[in-house]
Design a protein around this nucleic acid. Sequence first.
DNA 1: ATTTATTATCGTAATATTGCAATATATAAA
DNA 2: TTTATATATTGCAATATTACGATAATAAAT
Lengths: 107, 107
Amino acid sequence: MGISKTQIFSPSQNRLARQFKALAHPARIAILQFLSRQEGCICNDIVEEIGLAQPTISQHLKELKQVGLIQGEVEGKKICYCINAEVWKSLQDEFHSFFETGGNSCC
Amino acid sequence: MGISKTQIFSPSQNRLARQFKALAHPARIAILQFLSRQEGCICNDIVEEIGLAQPTISQHLKELKQVGLIQGEVEGKKICYCINAEVWKSLQDEFHSFFETGGNSCC
DNA sequence: ATTTATTATCGTAATATTGCAATATATAAA
DNA sequence: TTTATATATTGCAATATTACGATAATAAAT
């Protein structure tokens, strides 16, 4: 992102930005939509569905994990990635309140 | 962002990601919140409120303009930046439907 | 124990973002 | 017309992101 002067913003502003950033890539949108459709959750299914190299997908999964939107469960040598419904809901709530609170303007 | 293979994703996925990205920086969150509070809309007010250099703010305003979230109206030698309520609402709707449609998972 | 399959990590190239100083542009005021 | 003020643009340094090949790590199967 280049350096970002996080210290001059409120924790809430930084948190919101971080959450939006987690969704700011089409691959991560696609991954979440795929998991939501429940057509598969195994890492390899995701790799095949999205069409990016396995290490790239692994990196995107890591970013989604870092904001808590998904979690991985080991199933033998495979890993099932699942959406964390509570985090999903809490993002939805935070985004909703951001949009509800704002949007007014002068002209 | 580094190169992004936009061509392998759907227009809707790319659009969603682009919209999320517009909000993926605390300065842009702060700008939108400031405009929403209607304490000021003049570019210089924003610069003073946020506490980043004028060229930096100008750049962030440009990004918000590019997704249509704000628009600038010339007032003499000043410029009043206003939130575009329709675009605001349409983002809200798109995000809402993204979260409503998704969030299910296997485990 | 070796092989195979699955996922993660490392290293790196290409590109994008962030931030600012310097400068250009534009408009109003003197 | 000159000056002052407000905003945009340019150029650049520092850092982050995206993508992938190579490789490591893990666990099942042989």
